[in-house]
């Protein structure tokens, strides 16, 4: 999204005005997206109002809109937990990523590019493998737990994994690069002379940071928090691997309803509700943060 913000469309007057060429260029990609993104979402909405038919595993369209209400009341706890975990994970990721991005942008000189590559590098080692690695590092046989045992900071009965905090740490970890890159993008564009000017006007380092750097990096903060929050709210892998039955997020419910229980109407209405809640939150957030150019 930072990239979108950066690549603001060239003013229309410079662009070629040819009637058909752009449509030929757009057609193949947009047809693909219509068939496999728009049409599926519409089908999802349709499936949500179906009810069980005569046969086993058969559903017929009865436009039962109450399905949505049943879905939201039945899983209110998991919805709430998902957004709570995603919010905390996003804040942790912001706290870790901001200094990281700041350091890469202002303090790393010629190593800037290498450090940027390193931020993205963990992505290449499978996301599931890394989550499993966390489980084993923090697990009962892992080095961290053994150390805590030796220091008498833990008993064999305590758990580091299978807990809400493990899930949140996993979420914050997994989406950290999504937070760091947009932050870096907006920090890097700050003209150092602006910061010097602030110093010349007798602001100390902290005041400069608070009154100049942070406001100028807001587009990056908005983009980064969204890119972390959205996938975190819909994730179920961290809750599955690092959590326990009482840390289930809405993603776990949807996944189980689709793939195990095969209650497609319920799963579809839950997915659609999730999408609507996220869209509304995102729109409110973008309004508040005041960077509408993002979209």
């Amino acid at each position: 999204m930072a990239v979108i913000a950066r690549a603001k469309d060239a003013s229309t007057s410079e662009l070629k005005k040819k009637s058909l060429v752009p449509y030929f260029l757009l057609a193949p990609g947009l047809i693909w997206l219509s068939l496999f993104f728009v049409a599926p979402i519409i089908t999802l909405v349709g499936t949500a109002t179906k009810t069980p038919g005569a046969g086993i595993g058969e559903f017929v369209q009865t436009y039962r809109w109450a399905n949505y209400w049943d879905a939201i009341t039945g899983s209110a706890g998991q919805f709430g937990r998902s957004f709570l975990y995603a919010t905390i994970a996003t804040l942790i990721a912001l706290a870790i990523a901001y200094p990281l991005a700041y350091g890469i942008a202002f303090k790393s000189g010629k190593y800037k590019n290498i450090l940027l590559v390193l931020v993205v590098a963990p992505f290449f080692c499978s996301f599931i493998l890394r989550t499993i690695a966390w489980k084993q590092i923090l697990g009962q046989n892992g080095p961290v737990f053994r150390l805590l045992l030796d220091l008498h900071l833990a008993t064999p009965m305590t758990h580091l994994t299978a807990s809400p905090s493990a899930v949140i740490i996993g979420l914050a970890y997994n989406f950290l690069p999504f937070m760091t890159l947009p932050l870096y993008g907006s920090l890097e564009r700050i003209d150092p002379r602006v910061l010097e000017a602030s110093g010349d006007l007798y602001a100390n380092a902290f005041t400069t940071f608070r009154r100049v750097t942070v406001p100028l990096s807001m587009p990056g903060v908005v983009a980064g928090t969204l890119l972390t929050f959205i996938p975190a709210a819909g994730d179920y892998v961290n809750a599955e691997i690092l959590g326990n039955p009482s840390t289930k997020m809405i993603g776990n419910v949807i996944n189980a309803q689709f793939l195990n229980t095969q209650d497609y109407p319920l799963a579809a209405s839950l997915s659609f509700i999730l999408m609507i809640i996220i869209s509304v939150l995102v729109m409110v957030y973008i309004r508040k943060a005041g960077t509408e150019e993002l979209v």
Binding site: M1, I4, L30, L33, S34, F36, F37, V38, A39, P40, I41, T43, L44, T47, L226, I230, P231, A233, G234, D235, Y236, G251, I254, N255, F258, Y264, A267, A268, S271, F272, L274, M275, I278, S279, V282, V295
Partner: peptide
């Protein structure tokens, strides 16, 4: 622009589930 932006702003779960439905 909206059609390009939306898939990036939707949770993967919703993308996967809706495709499965269709």
């Amino acid at each position: 622009n909206t059609l390009i932006f939306l898939p990036m702003a939707s949770p993967e779960l919703v993308l996967g589930a809706s495709l499965l439905t269709i």
